[in-house]
């Protein structure tokens, strides 16, 4: 099995170029998971400017977010899904691209809610620390997130921020768990054509304490041979 860096690097489309660059940058940093956010954000911003904005063949063209929002989305996404020894981070998995595309696709209230939330975050950080979220120190960012990441322990004044962060976290989870890396992390082991259907595996049946009454189909079926699509002659339209 490939590691996260190889998965990212082996992806065929150029869209992943800047994520690979980010990944390399992060791997060069001393402590995994405790990336100094200000320097990362600075580097990410320069990547956005040099790679995303000119719109070359190898870049991600922003669809809904501004460059500043894009940077914040990347930093926030990696706070939510960081890299660990089992997978890369949200940005490694292309979550910011997913979010930018999804917001463009859905538009309307969702886009306004996310953009408004990102603005709220920067306003609040500026008020407290004199700089936007991505330019705050790692500790300042963490303090901010701890105010809005726990709906049940939040002050009423932060309700706006909580609603935003809950929605944003959902977007990150959606993007991560539908990415190639997220599917390996789960893992989802389907989408593989089968010769027969085995039913629930015996260890799981035992763990659940259920009774499996039906025979697996393999026991009732003759071997089918290779799985193959029908040929055009079998499934074609004679007359248009």
């Amino acid at each position: 099995m490939k590691n996260a860096a190889e998965q990212s690097g082996s992806s065929s489309t150029g869209l992943r170029f800047h994520r690979r660059a980010m990944l390399k940058m992060m791997m060069a940093l001393p402590v995994a998971g405790l990336v100094p956010r200000a320097s990362f954000a600075e580097a990410a911003r320069s990547l956005v400017e040099t790679v995303v904005m000119p719109g070359g063949a190898a870049s991600w063209k922003l669809r809904a977010l501004t460059p500043q929002e894009w940077t914040t989305v990347g930093v926030l996404s990696d706070w939510i899904i960081p890299a660990d020894d089992e997978s890369g981070s949200a940005t490694d998995a292309g979550v910011p691209e997913f979010i930018d595309d999804w917001l463009d696709f859905q538009r309307g209230e969702l886009l306004a809610e996310i953009q408004g939330g990102l603005a709220w975050l920067d306003t609040e950080c500026s008020r407290l620390h004199g700089s936007t979220f991505v330019n705050c120190t790692s500790d300042e960012q963490r303090q901010m997130l701890d105010r809005i990441a726990w709906p049940e322990r939040t002050a009423a004044d932060d309700a706006q921020g909580v609603a935003f962060f809950s929605r944003f976290r959902d977007l990150v989870l959606s993007g991560f768990y539908t990415s190639e890396a997220g599917i390996r992390y789960l893992p989802y082991v389907g989408n593989q054509p089968q010769r027969g259907w085995q039913g629930c595996p015996a260890p799981v049946v035992a763990q659940l304490g259920v009774t499996n009454v039906a025979l697996p189909l393999e026991q009732t079926l003759p071997s089918q041979g290779a799985v193959r699509p029908l040929t055009p002659s079998q499934l074609s339209a004679r007359v248009r």
Binding site: G33, W79, I80, I81, P82, D84, W102, L145, A149, W150, P151, E152, S166, R169, D170, L173, S174, G175, Y177, T178, G182, I183, L186, Y188, G190, N191
Partner: peptide, 25 residues
């Protein structure tokens, strides 16, 4: 059952209880 699609494992407030980072992951 089925390929993960957007919306999977969301509904963070009722199920996940909130949070972020490795514990959330």
């Amino acid at each position: 059952s089925g390929m993960p699609a957007p919306g999977l494992l969301t509904g963070s407030e009722s199920l996940l209880g909130g949070g972020y980072g490795k514990a959330l992951k």
